[in-house]
Design a protein around this nucleic acid. Structure first.
Length: 619
DNA sequence: CTTAGGG
DNA sequence: CCCTAAG
């Protein structure tokens, strides 16, 4: 449990981070500034006690603060705000708007609007849910449940001396960051404002700019910001003294009014000068924020019309790591129906039902670089263990039948194999050896494929016929043909396993290989494998190549001795008949001298028999 | 993925 | 056989 929480407290020190307070126009109410409520970072330890935040944590927060500041600065630089000195500037604001009016109603806005609105609206739906949550959290945290009782008259308990502070403090604290709060005074009819004006107002409300061009969204946001309420009519936006006045039925609006103010004030001091509860703020910030997070998504929905917003916003705002919640949400969405539009799913989550629990969780699933890590949740013994989910599949190796493997290697293999199997996705019997690559270290090795049941039966038939055919050539046992197949991992003295399985080449195989080479040419291993070795699931092209290499070597080594070697040498498991070696040599020479292209005119030096034999089917 | 080569 | 570097 290392949840970071903000704890209200009077901490002047933190003010250093808010230059806004001292410089700039004289605070209208020095007292408030002297006694602001500031968030202090602490960490709640398991037992409930709190310890000071670590440097790192503080840094993080400061980062955020800076973030915000940097965001605010541009606002100041625009010089649009003529200072927020006094509270009675509303009129001038009006005029200001009028003056700078003109291009506000550019057509693009409206065309763009439709798209934008779509998305943003959706976002809002969702966000609202979050807001509700947050509000509740706040309510419970401050325990006096004031949020829920608008007219309780318990203002005195407000550490900031009552409701009035709401405005004065805000304007005071934020004086320097220039949001023109005067604009927020008195009656505001958002409906009458142009997009540009809305932007102004937005700025004034939140102390930052927005690039959203959706009037509806702006109005809603502003309304929410000003009233600290998330329950904003979607149609009418008349705000008087921080109260939304719904057209027709005024007071009926269930706004939280100033009650939330105290909460929001705390939040305000901390970060943004807007009168928005901080949690709320984080959740419903610009859609761009959200989109930023959403960006992690491959097929993010903001790809078209809102694209510019993203980029624009991103340049201005540092990208924050998506919270775990987002990751979860996204993955959910992604896995379910995500294919570019997450509208519907978002809509769903828009219901207030979303569990508050989920978003308090620490961000653990993300590496420090913000890159989500693909893991597999294994519930082992109650604790969630995340296993890096490796899934390597053998390229085109022998068919490894895991069942057989497990049978053959009872001991350590059992468990390991099982695990591996699970991790690999059972169905694929071609398991990449690489998984076991660590054989020397891991201590266990893959099993030989030998005992393949069905597949092999099938090919054993073919094999059988071949055997007969081969039987003459070699004096091999036709019965135990496969019995010796298994040359399991050879346990080396060190306990580490050596080599996988050694499958001795049978004479028939060799013949086939030679034949194949004769037919398709040296180096066409894949072809030979495909055509001549179709029935041998093991024996990859590489194997063929290797074998050929060996044959070649042998053939040349033996040639001088000719047939004599047959018995001379050490007992080779499958002594290769001289004729074959001879063929090999011939083939080798042919192939060497005659680049693949030429047809047949260049082989005078070889006896016809061989050549013909060799080339049978070739020409 | 397929080849070639080294190990 | 394994592993890898190269097309």
């Amino acid at each position: 449990m290392e949840t970071e929480v903000g704890v209200g407290g009077n901490d002047e020190a933190k003010l250093d981070d808010m230059p806004a307070v001292e410089a700039g126009s004289p605070p209208s109410s020095p007292r408030e500034i002297a006694d602001p409520v500031v968030y202090k970072l602490v960490r709640v330890v398991g037992d409930g006690s709190m310890v000071p935040a670590t440097d790192d944590e503080v840094m993080e927060v400061e980062d955020l603060l800076e973030d915000d500041k940097s965001e605010i600065h541009p606002v100041a630089d625009t010089g649009q705000n003529v200072g927020c000195a006094s509270n009675d500037e509303f009129p001038s604001t009006k005029t200001q708007f009028d003056d700078s009016e003109g291009q506000c109603e550019n057509p693009e806005v409206d065309t763009e609007k439709s798209h934008t609105q779509l998305d943003t609206t959706v976002e809002l739906e969702k966000l609202n849910a979050g807001i509700e949550e947050t509000v509740h959290l706040f309510a419970t945290n401050s325990n006096d449940g004031r949020i829920d009782q608008p007219e309780s008259g318990g203002e005195c308990s407000n550490p900031l001396d009552g409701p009035i502070e709401n405005e004065s403090l805000v304007s005071a604290v934020c004086t320097n960051s220039k949001p023109d709060f005067s604009k927020l005074e008195g009656e505001i009819c958002l409906d009458n404002l142009s997009v540009r004006e809305l932007h102004e107002t937005f700025k004034a409300t939140f102390g930052r700019e927005t690039s959203v061009k959706d009037k509806q969204w702006l109005k809603r946001r502003i309304a929410m910001g000003l009233t600290n309420s998330c329950d904003i009519s979607t149609t009418t936006f008349v705000i008087i003294d921080n109260k939304v006045v719904k057209k027709g039925k005024e007071g009926s609006a269930k706004n939280v009014e100033g009650k939330l103010a105290e909460v929001s004030v705390t939040g305000a001091v901390n970060e943004n000068c807007g009168g928005l509860p901080i949690g709320c703020n984080n959740l419903i910030e610009n859609p761009e924020d959200v989109s930023d997070e959403r960006l992690r998504n491959p097929g993010a929905e903001y790809d078209c019309s809102v694209g510019d917003l993203q980029t624009e916003q991103r340049s201005a705002k540092r990208v924050r790591k998506p919270t775990k919640r987002y990751i979860e949400e996204l993955s959910e969405v992604e896995s379910s129906e995500y294919s570019g539009k997450l509208v519907s799913s978002v809509k769903n989550s828009g219901d207030v039902q979303s569990s508050p629990v989920s978003h308090v969780r620490p961000v653990r699933d993300t590496w420090s670089d913000g890159r989500p890590v693909v893991t597999r949740q294994d519930s082992l013994g109650g604790s969630d263990v995340q296993v890096p989910y490796v899934c390597r599949v053998r390229r085109s190796r022998p068919r490894e039948n895991f069942m057989a493997l497990m049978e053959l290697q009872p001991s350590s293999m059992g468990m390991a194999t099982k695990l591996a199997k699970e991790a690999l996705g059972v169905r694929d019997n071609k398991i990449e050896k690489k998984v076991f690559k660590a054989r020397s270290t891991s201590g266990w090795i893959q099993k030989p494929p030998v005992t393949e049941s069905e597949k092999d039966k099938q090919y054993q038939k073919t094999k059988a016929s071949e055997l007969e055919k081969d039987a003459e050539l070699k004096h091999m046992d036709s019965s135990g043909y496969y019995s010796d197949d298994y040359t399991g991992p050879v346990p080396t003295a060190k306990g580490g396993m050596r080599r996988k399985h050694h499958r001795p080449w049978t004479l028939s195989e060799v013949v086939k290989l030679v034949d194949g080479v004769a037919r398709y040419g040296v180096g066409r291993w894949s072809e030979i494998k495909r055509l001549a070795f179709a029935s041998y699931s093991y024996r990859t092209s590489v194997d063929l190549k290797d074998k050929w290499r060996n044959l070649l070597r042998a053939s040349f080594a033996n040639s001088p001795a000719e047939k004599g070697m047959l018995s001379s040498r050490k007992h080779v498991s499958v002594p290769i008949p001289a004729p074959i070696l001879l063929r090999v040599r011939e083939l080798a020479e042919i192939q060497a001298q005659v680049p693949p292209n030429l047809s047949s005119s260049k082989f005078g030096a070889y006896d016809d028999r061989n050549v013909h034999e060799t080339r049978s089917g070739y020409l």
